[in-house]
Amino acid sequence: MYKLAKKTCIRLVSSIAIFIIFAYMVVAICSIPRDFTVSFSKGKLISSYSLKDISTKTNTNITSLVSGNLTNTFKGKNQWEILTEKLGKTLILLISGILLGIVLGIIKGIFDSRKGTIKDSHYKVLLTIIPMSFPDLLVIAVLQGMAIWLSKHNITIFKVAGHGTINHTLLPIIALSILPASYIARVTALSIESCYNMDYVKVAMGKGCSKTRILWNHVMRNALSIISEGLSSITSLIICNLLIVEFMFSYMGLAVTLVQFCKNNDIRGMVVVIIILGAIYFILDGIFQFTKKFVFQSLKEENI
């Protein structure tokens, strides 16, 4: 127990340290003035601003951020108010997208896997790989086209763009979940197939276990620990797609706010949004690592 607590603490401290370094680097990069140039003269590199100027500006920005000193921007609303409002909307998209991606991915992966048979199904595999290859813009355009077609047939559950109601979140959630679902489906199918090659599955077949029992009692139990390794990857996939999804669906979340801050040259606002997105990534990654470590416990021999 003591060793486990010690390992967990070390991991937590190292994650926090990495996050602090990340936050500092974000502030530092955003503190570089827009008119910063580098020229080559008389055999020397000359920059318009010295490293000392940039680091001084970085430290000033960090101090004001830590003290919560953000200037008012849009329509008299405090930046913290804006960010709190947008954060909730973005979190709804992110968490729902991740959960939907995992559920759909695992179901599709079970469907894709050969489940011990020799015959391969290229069609099923293609259905999983093709969404991974499509650009997000095309996927979003198809979803919006589908929503328009459905609305022409009086099915208005999906809203093409906008925000404010639950219906406005449905298509963005689906769009966010497609790529992670494809990734998880592929990982699930491969891990299920690797489990079906193991002797203990053949023994279970020889014992007279039904296909369902073999799948849930033997295969999925072992495959889930392999699948949990891939969960951290989908976090970065989803956060990368967030900007395109929010922009295309005119969903006023954090990523769209980041674009607005960038247009208004509001450095502090930009920094805060990027750090919040980074914090979301670290928290989600930590949750997945915890899930992998404690829920799908690896065996002692896997740690050797």
Binding site: Y200, K202, A204, G206, G208, C209, R213, N217, S225
Partner: peptide
């Protein structure tokens, strides 16, 4: 008709306890 496989390291489900492994055939049949 039962079987004992060659590789004892791969023939037992690593996620099941010995009690689970031995009681599974008892419950199936």
């Amino acid at each position: 008709i039962q079987v004992v496989f060659q590789n004892p390291y791969a023939a037992l489900d690593p996620k099941m306890t010995v009690a689970d492994i031995l009681s599974e055939p008892l419950s199936i049949h």
